[in-house]
Design a protein around this nucleic acid. Structure first.
Lengths: 160, 160
DNA sequence: CGGAATCCGTTCGGATACTG
DNA sequence: CAGTATCCGAACGGATTCCG
C-alpha cells in the first residue's frame, strides 16, 4: 500500500507539501534564507543527520527551490527564483511561530530591514474595510484546475 | 535512537514544525479554513486514512490550533484564535503554490473577498524603498531566545 | 572536508475491522 | 455515521561507516 502521491493531487498546496511536507524541509529553507550554502554548514547549524540532509537537499533541488552549483572542489546550494519566492511564506510562518509557538523568552532570531534597521514583518491581508481578513471573510469559488468534487462542493464562479 | 525533539529546539519555527511538519497537517488546516468542521467531512474531502486524520486532529487540538467541541451527538473541530491566526500563513503558502506548483490549468480554488469579490492576495513584504524584500535585504540579529551558537554566528544587536 | 551508502529503530500512513 | 484500534508496508530519520 503505497502512500498517497501528493504530486498527483490537483491542489497546488498539496503538491507543495510533497516537497515541503517533511519536518526538516522548512528548516533547510530557513538556513538557506539565513545565508547557508554548504552541505556541512547546513548539517552543523541544523543538527540534522547527513543522510536526511542529503535527501532533503536533493528534493529541494529536484523541485527547483535550490540549485546545486560547483564551487571550487565542492558544491554550493543556492536559492533559485522559485526558492527565493518562498521567502514571504517563511516570513509569515516565522511571524506566526514567534507569536504563538515561542517560549517565554520570545523569538530566537530577529530579521531587520538592512536599510532601515526596522524589524521586518509580513503585512497581514486585509479585507475591503481594512480589517484583518479571516476565513469567514472569504468566498470560495473553484478555479480552472478544480476537481468535479470541488465544483460540487463550492458551486459558483468568480462573477456569480 | 529517538528522533530529534523539535519541541525542545529554541527556534519557534522548528516548534511549529513539530505540529505542522507532517504532510497532511497543512491540508487539514486548509479544510478547516474552507469551513469543514466534522471528522467525516475532513476524511472525505481529503481522502486521508481515518487513523491518520484522528492523530493529526488530536495534535492540532493538543497544540490549540483547533478545539473539539460537542455538537449534538458528535463533535465539531473549530478553529481557535491561534488556528485562525495561521490563516495569513496559509494564504501566503497558497499564493506561492498557485504560482510555482500549479499545473498548466492553474489554481484549484480561488479565494475572494466576500465583500468586494476581488481575489484575496497576501501582500508581499516590502523594503524601505517599496521593493519586494529578499533574503539579501535583511540583517539578522539574535533575539532574546537565541542560543549561544546563534549569537556567535550572528554577532550584533538590533541597535548595533 | 563533502557527501553518499548502510543499518536499524521509529513513525507515518493506508486498508480494514471494530465499537458506540 | 463518528470515530478508535489493529495490522503492516513504506518512508523518515539518527548513528555510523565509507569513499573521493
Amino acid at each position: 500500500m503505497p502512500r498517497t502521491d501528493f504530486a498527483r493531487i490537483r491542489c497546488p498546496v498539496a503538491r507543495a507539501m510533497e516537497v515541503l511536507g517533511e519536518r526538516w524541509s522548512i528548516l533547510v529553507m530557513r538556513e538557506a534564507f539565513y545565508g547557508t550554502t554548504r552541505f556541512d554548514d547546513f548539517a552543523r547549524h541544523l543538527g540534522i543527520a547527513t543522510n536526511i540532509l542529503s535527501a532533503r537537499l536533493a528534493k529541494l533541488v529536484e523541485h527547483d527551490l535550490l540549485e546545486r552549483v560547483p564551487e571550487g572542489a565542492r558544491h554550493a546550494y543556492r536559492l533559485t527564483e522559485k526558492g527565493g519566492a518562498f521567502f514571504p511564506v517563511f516570513l509569515a510562518l516565522k511571524g506566526w511561530s514567534d507569536r504563538w509557538m515561542a517560549g517565554p523568552e520570545g523569538q530566537a532570531m530577529c530579521l531587520l530591514d538592512a536599510g532601515t534597521g526596522e524589524e521586518v514583518v509580513c503585512p497581514p491581508p486585509l479585507d475591503s474595510a481594512g480589517r484583518p481578513l479571516t476565513p469567514e471573510g472569504i468566498r470560495l469559488v473553484p478555479g480552472p484546475a478544480a476537481s468535479e468534487a470541488m465544483r460540487r462542493r463550492f458551486p459558483g464562479t468568480a462573477h456569480g
